[in-house]
Design a protein around this nucleic acid. Structure first.
Lengths: 348, 348
DNA sequence: ATGGTTACCGCAAACGTTTGCGGTAGCGGC
DNA sequence: GCCGCTACCGCAAACGTTTGCGGTAACCAT
C-alpha cells in the first residue's frame, strides 16, 4: 500500500484513482478508455482498471461533456407522453441509445410552439448531441433553425416536405388504402373520413390517400363526408363526428385519421343512440395499446411504433457519428390492418 | 463599437458576452444571475443583460453543473413508461420541475434489478441532484445504499416500511375498502382477490386490507379465493383468474389488485365463456386512462397519479434545497371508487 | 489630510475530464 | 558509441462556469 491517504468521503475522481495507482491522471484516463488503452502498458492498465473498480470510480459525465463537447445525451421532443402512441416510441429509442451509452431527455411540448421553444432551448443548454422530434408540423421554423445550426436531428412519425430532414414514418398510404378496401369489401359505399389537423403531415397524407383510394376503388368521394378535426384527440373526434351525424348526408362507416379520434367517435355514436358496428363501422389508425379491449374492439391500422423509435435512434446515432447527410433519407415502415369488432358488413 | 471582433460561429459563451460588454466574465456571470446581480452596477447589469440577449447567450448547463456540483436534473426510475400508469406521474413531476429549472431524466427498469442498477449508475454519472423512484420493492438494497449516500430521494406509488424514506402514495386502504363495500352492497358474498407480487408494498397492503375489510363487513374470507399474481400484468391476471376458475370454489366477484390484472381477468373470463358482469363482477385499481372505454367499462379505484407526481416532485425539491429530513414523511392522497359497467348485482 | 466605509469589479482558482505535445527509457541496428 | 524508433507516460492547457478574495475609486466623516 502506498503512503497516500485518500479521503473516502465523496465520489472518487480520476485523481483519486491516479493517486492510488501512483500514476498521472492522464494515464488513468487513457487506461479507462478502451479507445486509448493501447497507449498505456497492459499491466499498468489492468492495475488501474482494478483500482478504479475497487474505488467505485464513475466518470463525471458533466466534466467529460464539457471537455469533449459531447454530452452523450439526446433530446426527444414529443407532444404528450400521456398519449399512448409515444411510450412505445420512447422505449424503442432507449433500446438503441442505452447500449451506446446515450441518455434520452424527454420533453413534452403539448404542441404549443412557445412551450416547444422553451423545451428546445432547455435541451440545448444541456448540450444534447442531437434531437429526435415527434412534434413536427408541416412547416416548422424552429426545426429549420436547428437544421441550419447543423445539429443532428431526425423526425419520427412526422415528415417535412422540403428541407432534407431525415425521418422515419409509417406507410400511411398502404394503411389507409387497406382500410378503405376493407370497408368496401364489407359492402360500404358511404364512407366518412375524419381528417386530422391540417398542419400535420400525416393528416394531409392520410386525407389525400383516402380520396385517391376511394376513387380508385370505385367509390364516389363526397366532400360532405369529410370532416376536419382540430386535434388528434378524443374530444375533437367526438365533435367532428357529431357534426357529421347532424348533417343530412348519411353514411355507414367512418375512417378516423387516428385512434383517439376513433375513440371520440365511440362517444358521439353512443350519445346519438347509434351502435357500432351495427349502424356505423369505425376504423382507427395507429393500433394503440389496449385498443383491442374497447367496446367494441377497434379495427385499426397497426403502426410499428417501437420499431420506429429504434430506427429513429439508429439514424440519429449515425448522424452524430458520421455527420449530417447532405440530403435526409426518409425510412418508411410497413403497417398492417388489424380487423376487430368495430367493422361489420353493411346492413342489407 | 469596441475594437474586438468576436467570431459569430459557435454558441456564445460568457467570454463572448464579456468581450462585447468590455467587462470581465465574472461580472457577466454575476449580472446574469439574479441572486448576485446586486453585486454589479445596475446600468452595467442592464447593458450586459441586453448584450447577452442580443448574442443569444445560453448558459452551459454542463459547465455550470461541473462548477457548482448541482446539475439541475433529477432521475426518475420507473418500471416501464409503456404502463399507462406512469405517464401521468411523469407529467406531474415535470409540471413542478420545469418551472424551477430542473430537467427529469427518465429511466425504465422493467423491474429487473440489474437493469435498475445500470440505470441508476448511469443517472449518477450525470450527477442528478436527486431521485424519484416508482420501482421500490418492499426491501430494496439499492435504495438503502442511495439513502446512505445522502442523496435526495422520494418514492412514489410505493413505500418502504423502514428506513425513513419519504414517499407519496395513494390511500389504498380506503380504496380497497370502498371496493369491497361496493361489492357487498351489490349482494356479493363470494369475492375473490387477485393479489400483486408479494415483494411490492402496494400488493401486501391491498391484500391485508381486503382481508380486514371483508371480515369487518361480515363476509368470510376464504383462502381458496385468494390468488397471487407474479406481476402487475395482463398475462399474470389472466393466469391467476384461470387458476381460480379451474378450482372448485365458486365466486361471483373478483377484486383485482391492479387494472392490468383486471384486464387479464377479462381475457380469462372470455376464454372460459363467462360474462362480465353477468357471471362475474370485476373491479380494478388505478383507473388507468381509457379504461372507461373497455368492454365492459371497468369499475376501478381512481388514483390521482398526476397529483402524485406533482407532490413527489415538490417533496424532492424541498429535500434538494433544505437537505434530507431526519425522518421521511409519507404523503397519502385520497382515492375514489369509480363505478362503471363491470360490476352488477349478484344474480338472485 | 487621514481613516473608514461602501460599491463595484477584476483576478485566479477550481470543478473533472481529455488530449496534443514532449520527454525519457529501452532497445535494436549499424 | 551513436542514431533512430517505439512504448510508455507526464505536463499542462482547455472546456465554461462560479466564487472567495482583494483591489480601486469614490465618498463621507473626522
Amino acid at each position: 500500500m502506498g503512503g497516500y491517504s485518500v479521503p473516502m468521503s465523496a465520489v472518487p475522481t480520476l485523481r483519486d484513482v491516479a493517486v492510488h495507482a501512483g500514476v498521472h491522471v492522464a494515464t488513468v484516463s487513457r487506461a479507462l478508455n478502451p479507445e486509448t488503452r493501447h497507449q498505456v502498458n497492459a499491466e499498468t492498465a489492468a492495475r488501474i482498471i482494478s483500482i478504479a473498480r475497487d474505488l467505485g470510480y464513475r466518470p463525471n459525465a458533466l466534466a467529460r461533456g464539457l471537455r469533449t463537447a459531447r454530452s452523450t445525451t439526446v433530446g426527444v421532443l414529443l407532444p404528450d407522453i400521456t398519449n399512448p402512441l409515444f411510450p412505445p416510441i420512447v422505449r424503442g429509442i432507449e433500446e438503441v441509445l442505452l447500449p451506446e451509452g446515450y441518455t434520452a431527455l424527454i420533453a413534452n411540448t403539448d404542441n404549443a410552439p412557445d412551450q416547444e421553444e422553451a423545451q428546445f432551448t432547455r435541451l440545448r443548454q444541456h448540450h444534447v448531441d442531437g434531437f429526435i422530434v415527434a412534434t413536427a408540423r408541416r412547416d416548422h421554423p424552429l426545426l429549420r433553425r436547428v437544421r441550419q445550426e447543423k445539429i443532428p436531428l431526425v423526425l419520427v412519425n412526422r415528415t417535412i416536405e422540403r428541407g432534407g430532414f431525415t425521418s422515419v414514418v409509417a406507410d400511411d398510404t398502404a394503411g389507409v388504402t387497406a382500410a378503405v378496401r376493407h370497408l368496401i369489401d364489407l359492402g360500404h359505399r358511404d364512407i366518412a373520413f375524419l381528417a386530422g389537423p391540417s398542419n400535420l403531415s400525416t393528416a394531409l397524407l392520410r386525407l389525400n390517400t383516402f380520396k385517391r383510394a376511394a376513387a380508385e376503388l370505385g367509390v364516389a368521394v363526397d366532400g360532405r363526408l369529410i370532416e376536419r378535426c382540430e386535434a388528434y384527440s378524443e374530444a375533437a373526434g367526438d365533435a367532428a363526428l357529431s357534426r357529421l351525424i347532424a348533417g343530412e348526408r348519411r353514411f355507414t362507416a367512418v375512417l378516423a385519421s387516428n385512434d383517439l379520434i376513433a375513440l371520440g367517435c365511440y362517444d358521439a355514436l353512443e350519445r346519438n343512440g347509434l351502435s357500432c358496428p351495427g349502424d356505423i363501422s369505425v376504423i382507427g389508425f395507429n393500433d394503440m395499446p389496449f385498443i383491442d379491449k374497447l367496446r367494441p374492439p377497434l379495427t385499426s391500422v397497426h403502426v410499428p411504433h417501437h420499431e420506429m423509435g429504434r430506427t429513429a435512434a439508429r439514424l440519429l446515432l449515425k448522424q452524430i457519428r458520421d455527420g449530417l447527410p447532405r440530403r435526409g433519407e426518409t425510412v418508411q415502415l410497413p403497417v398492417e390492418l388489424v380487423v376487430r369488432g368495430s367493422t361489420a358488413a353493411v346492413r342489407p
